[in-house]
Amino acid sequence: DESNKPILLPNESQSFERSVQLLDQIPSYDTHKIAVLYVGEGQSNSELAILSNEHGSYRYTEFLTGLGRLIELKDCQPDKVYLGGLDVCGEDGQFTYCWHDDIMQAVFHIATLMPTKDVDKHRCDKKRHLGNDFVSIVYNDSGEDFKLGTIKGQFNFVHVIVTPLDYECNLVSLQCRKDMEGLVDTSVAKIVSDRNLPFVARQMALHANMASQVHHSRSNPTDIYPSKWIARLRHIKRLRQRICEEAAYSNPSLPLVHPPSHSKAPAQTPAEPTPGYEVGQRKRLISSVEDFTE
């Protein structure tokens, strides 16, 4: 099969070098950035008060330690540790928490760990991170309901609301924008112990962030949302095809390698009803078989 044979790379090609550099910018793992907010007593309706908090309760602090690993920003190499735009020179604080497994990295933009500057009256330095995160974990210690939209931002799609209760338990629920209701189930609340709260809140936030990324990708319907490693695979396959075309153009005697095509017509299947918005969006999480067989 010609399409699977190794090909020689061009010795000097600026377009090839640019493509390789672009490939280096696509990590081999999925990345997520999640905002974390603490809401104190009497702050449920005040964005400024929430963003001005420099610490929270003892249970909130224990919750943070379970979310991930504490890292010092100045020691991080952005090409190895995903920071979601946090500055490593102290502009966004000294520490944050991050978490990773074999296929993804997540960083938490924690408002109480970011510096509260006197010259920044409206807390814009914090909002440029927190307001651009799709998902926020809100530790609501106010005793009042927290409403979506209290923290203004164009991309605040989903809130994971943590409400501490007695007996070391917590109520965990989801809020989302109306255009996200087909992807996020907000109907079920959970009672979770303090011990298990970081794991549950983190998983709910990661799932909500993946759904938000799919939702946000609708602005470019021709580019369905893939995982990062599938995006790398697609980029490599496009690069291979372009090299083959350039080689055939410079030397017409060489065969032009095309991806294999299936001449056999697909079997006719009964027509199915058109899937609704929710089903269609969830299918976009699934990769096409052509990603692996071309």
Rank of each mutant, 00 (worst) to 15 (best):
K80R: 08
I50Y: 03
V138Y: 01
S15L: 12
P10D: 15
I151L: 11
S227H: 05
P255D: 12
I7A: 07
G276C: 12
S142I: 01
P260N: 14
V39N: 01
C244D: 14
S13C: 09
T116N: 15
S217Y: 11
H122V: 10
R234T: 07
S13A: 09
Y97R: 08
I243S: 05
R232F: 05
K121R: 09
S52E: 06
Q43D: 02
D87F: 02
M114F: 03
R123D: 11
V36K: 00
Y225D: 13
T116M: 06
S219P: 03
N11V: 11
L9G: 08
L171F: 03
D1M: 14
K33F: 14
A265K: 13
P226L: 06
I161K: 01
E278S: 08
S13H: 11
R123C: 15
D145N: 07
K147S: 13
H55S: 07
L233Q: 13
F95N: 03
V88W: 07
I71Y: 08
W99T: 02
G42P: 01
A265N: 09
S187K: 07
A189L: 14
L171E: 05
F199C: 03
H55C: 12
R284H: 14
Y58V: 06
L37C: 03
V20Q: 07
N11E: 13
P78W: 05
F95Y: 10
G276Q: 13
R18V: 05
V119N: 12
I230K: 10
M114H: 06
I26S: 06
I7H: 06
P198A: 12
R232S: 11
Q105V: 14
R123E: 10
K33R: 09
G182C: 10
H55Q: 09
I224Q: 07
D92A: 11
G85Y: 03
N45P: 02
G84Q: 11
K178F: 09
E294R: 06
E72T: 10
F95I: 05
I7Q: 06
S44I: 07
S187C: 06
D179K: 03
I26Q: 07
Q21S: 10
S52T: 07
C176N: 01
Y249I: 12
L285F: 12
D118H: 13
Q213D: 02
F16N: 07
D194M: 00
V200P: 00
V88H: 06
L83V: 11
V81W: 13
A267Q: 10
T269D: 10
G93E: 09
Q203G: 03
V200I: 10
P78C: 09
H109N: 03
L70H: 06
E12R: 04
P221S: 06
Y167H: 04
P6F: 05
D145G: 05
A35F: 02
S219I: 09
T31A: 03
F199P: 01
H262K: 10
I151F: 08
A208V: 03
S3D: 15
C124E: 15
L174S: 03
E72S: 11
R232C: 06
L233D: 15
V39L: 02
N140E: 00
S253A: 11
D125C: 12
D79S: 06
H109K: 04
E47D: 04
E41W: 07
L197E: 00
E181L: 12
I110R: 03
E278A: 09
S136G: 03
P221Y: 05
R234M: 07
K264R: 10
F199N: 02
S253H: 14
E272I: 09
G68V: 04
E41G: 03
I50F: 03
T65A: 11
L8N: 12
K127E: 06
D118Q: 11
F63W: 01
N140K: 00
I110C: 05
K264M: 09
H122E: 15
A35Q: 05
I34H: 00
S253F: 07
P10C: 15
Y97F: 10
N170D: 02
N220R: 06
I110F: 03
V39W: 01
S212H: 02
D101T: 02
H100E: 15
T61Y: 11
P10M: 13
D102C: 08
G182A: 07
Y97E: 03
Y58N: 05
G42T: 03
A189I: 15
D145Q: 08
Q105L: 14
D179F: 14
S52R: 09
D133Q: 04
E91Y: 10
T150F: 03
P10R: 09
P27H: 04
D120H: 11
L37H: 02
T163H: 03
P226F: 04
G56W: 02
L171S: 04
F157E: 06
E168K: 05
R123S: 10
R240K: 11
A49Q: 08
F199T: 03
P164K: 00
T31D: 03
M204K: 01
E41N: 04
N156L: 06
P273F: 10
Y60I: 00
C244Q: 12
S288F: 06
Q14D: 11
L8C: 15
Q175E: 06
E168F: 04
Y249D: 12
D125F: 13
Q213P: 01
S219H: 10
L206W: 03
S136C: 11
G276E: 09
K126H: 04
L254Q: 15
V36I: 04
R18S: 13
A189Q: 11
A111Q: 03
L171M: 08
C76P: 11
S142K: 01
E245N: 09
F155Q: 14
M104A: 12
Y277N: 14
K127L: 15
Y29E: 09
H100D: 14
V172G: 00
V138Q: 00
I50W: 03
E62M: 08
T222Q: 10
S15P: 11
V200W: 04
D92K: 11
I286P: 13
L239N: 10
F16Q: 07
S142Y: 00
Y225Q: 13
A208W: 02
R234E: 12
L51H: 03
H235A: 10
G93C: 12
H32M: 13
P10W: 11
R59P: 00
N209M: 02
Q94L: 15
S253E: 14
L183Q: 04
H235K: 06
P198G: 06
H262D: 15
V88S: 08
G143I: 01
L239Y: 11
H100A: 14
Y277I: 11
V279N: 14
L23F: 05
E17I: 13
Q43T: 02
L22K: 15
D223W: 06
H159S: 15
D120A: 09
S227W: 08
N220H: 08
H32S: 05
L165F: 03
E17K: 13
D120R: 09
K121T: 12
S142A: 04
I191R: 02
E272H: 12
Q213N: 07
G153H: 07
D79W: 04
T150G: 03
S13V: 09
V162E: 00
Y249E: 07
D24C: 03
L256T: 14
T61P: 01
T61D: 07
D118S: 13
M104Y: 05
K178Q: 10
Q268R: 12
N170Q: 00
T150E: 03
E72V: 08
I224P: 13
L174D: 00
N156K: 02
E144P: 01
I7D: 11
L51Q: 02
V135P: 00
K121F: 09
